[in-house]
Simulated scan of single mutants.
Amino acid sequence: MVLGGGPLGAIIGRYPSSSAAAGDDEQGDPGPGGGVIRHDRKCRDWPFLVLFAAFWVAMIVNSSFGFNQGNPLRLTYGLDYKGNICGSRHADPDLYQLDVRYWVNPNQVYQSGLKTSHIELPDAKTICLMECPLPAEDGLNFVCDYPEGDIRLSVDDWIDRDYDYFEYLTPDMRNSSLQLQGPCYPVIFPSVNVYWSCQFIARASNASLKHWKDMGGVTIDENMLIDRTIHDAINSKSAVMKRYVADIGKSWPVLILCGGLLPLFLSMIWLLMIRFFVAGMSWITVVVFNALVVSVTMFFYIKAGWIGHDPLTVVIGESDPYVSIGGREINHLHAASVLMTVIMILAFLTSIAIARRIMKATSVLK
């Protein structure tokens, strides 16, 4: 065994040090690269190398599967009871422009919200529509399943009829529909489009409910649980994260432009201004920075609804102004507005604190 000296101390092993391999000079000092092992250098951690290679192979396989089988629309739109993505051209039937997911059976929604129930909301029957249906003012509307089988209607005709072909049903189909077993279901509760899913408003239409009972329909639960169950599903942490990822995917051109090309262009202008206006650039930088901070803060205030009349809302499209629906994204926006307020105040105070130093530095630059 050879004991050699290295930059981190003694090197103990069966390999000679560089001084032994290359020889010392006449004064006994090691030559260049002293203390470095020069012979038989090789990988000595094969298990970890194999594990690392397996990790990369798994990543490549997983990424390939995602690119080939995945669909980014899953991050934004829901699924119908057939497993089709709402709004997909490749669904059966073609669901292009049918972007909104609608739960047709309110009793299934209610039961899925019960703690003692074995039914989950994803198990409740859903179909894809162009917009959320509303109850009739003096009658009863139906939302029927996709036209197929004995129903001789095209999808376009089904849409033009507001998804209602109850009058074409056979007696057996009508009895099945009155038991909430399809193919047609009553529209008893109003609903609004919340992130491409129809959020029930637990405020049943008395006229529609009366017509339903007169027709011999089964009892429909009117509990607030119908509203809260869908809201909790739409507002879950995983659903919010999916929407954030989807937003990033949709905004990549803006990110490239505003996060890459525009800063590069502005930085070149900034360098040119330093070249020709070096004395005033310190103050220009401070003023522009504070103006940008104030602008971003005011933008957050507007979207949070604290200023103006253009707040960010979870409802897509028009809705009843008396219906207020919150969401995690709104809470996140309020928190970001408060954070930007703190940053704005700190920016102002910092600018005031360094004003005298900037004046001294400017006199030197002149």
Rank of each mutant, 00 (worst) to 15 (best):
Lys303Leu: 10
Pro321His: 00
Trp283Leu: 09
Gly305Pro: 02
Gly308Phe: 01
Glu318Met: 07
Ser319Tyr: 09
Ala336His: 05
Phe276Cys: 09
Asp320Met: 04
Thr313Leu: 01
Ile307Phe: 05
His332Trp: 15
Ser282Asn: 15
Ala336Gln: 05
Ile307Pro: 04
Ala291Leu: 04
Ala279Tyr: 10
Gly317His: 05
Pro321Lys: 03
Ile307Thr: 03
Glu318Arg: 13
Val287Cys: 06
Ile325Leu: 01
Asn331Tyr: 11
Phe276Asp: 08
Leu339Gly: 12
Ala336Ile: 06
Val293Glu: 05
Ser324Arg: 15
Met281Phe: 03
Asp310Cys: 15
His309Gly: 10
Val287Arg: 04
Asn290Thr: 08
Ile325Gln: 06
Ile325Pro: 04
Gly280Val: 07
Phe276Val: 10
Phe299Val: 10
Phe277Leu: 13
Ile269Gln: 15
Met281Val: 00
Leu271Arg: 12
Val278Arg: 15
Ala335Cys: 07
Pro311Met: 04
Val296Gly: 05
Ile307Asn: 00
Thr313Arg: 14
Gly326Asp: 04
Gly326Leu: 06
His309Asn: 15
Met298Asp: 07
Ala304Lys: 02
Tyr322Arg: 14
Val342Glu: 01
Val338Met: 13
Val278Lys: 15
Val287Gly: 01
Pro311Gly: 02
Ile316Tyr: 05
Gly317Gln: 01
Ile302Glu: 07
Arg275Trp: 07
Leu333Tyr: 00
Phe276Met: 05
Phe289Pro: 01
Ala335Pro: 02
Leu272Thr: 07
Leu292Val: 14
Tyr322Trp: 15
Gly317Asp: 03
Ile302Ala: 06
Val286Ser: 07
Phe276Ala: 14
Arg328Leu: 05
Val323Phe: 08
Gly305Ile: 01
Gly305Gln: 03
Asp320Gly: 02
Ala335Glu: 00
Lys303Thr: 11
Ile316Asp: 13
Val315Leu: 03
Val314Gly: 08
Asn331Pro: 06
Met273Gln: 08
Tyr301Asp: 10
Met340Gly: 00
Arg275Val: 02
Pro321Phe: 01
Ser319Asp: 06
Thr313Val: 04
Val338Trp: 09
Lys303Met: 14
Tyr301Phe: 14
His309Phe: 13
Gly280Arg: 07
Ile325Gly: 00
Gly305Val: 06
Ala335Thr: 06
Leu271Trp: 13
Trp283Val: 06
Trp283Pro: 02
Leu333Ile: 00
Met340Ile: 06
Val314Glu: 09
Gly308Arg: 03
Arg275Phe: 11
Trp270Phe: 14
Ala335Asp: 08
Ser324Glu: 11
Trp283Phe: 08
Ser324Lys: 13
Thr341Tyr: 11
Thr341Asn: 09
Val314Cys: 11
Val338Arg: 10
Met281Asp: 06
Val278Cys: 15
Val314Gln: 06
Leu292Trp: 10
Trp306Glu: 04
Val278Thr: 14
Tyr301Glu: 13
Pro311Leu: 00
Phe300Tyr: 12
His334Ile: 12
Asn290Phe: 09
Ile316Val: 14
Ser295Asn: 14
Leu339Tyr: 11
Glu318Gln: 11
Thr285Gln: 09
Leu339Arg: 00
Met340Asn: 09
Leu272Phe: 14
Met298His: 12
Val315Glu: 00
Ile325Val: 10
Ile316Lys: 12
Gly326Trp: 07
Gly280Trp: 00
Trp270Ser: 11
Leu312Met: 11
Asp310Tyr: 14
Leu271Gly: 07
Gly308Pro: 02
Thr313Ser: 05
Thr313Lys: 03
Phe299Lys: 13
Thr313Cys: 04
Val296Cys: 03
Ala304Arg: 00
Ile343Cys: 04
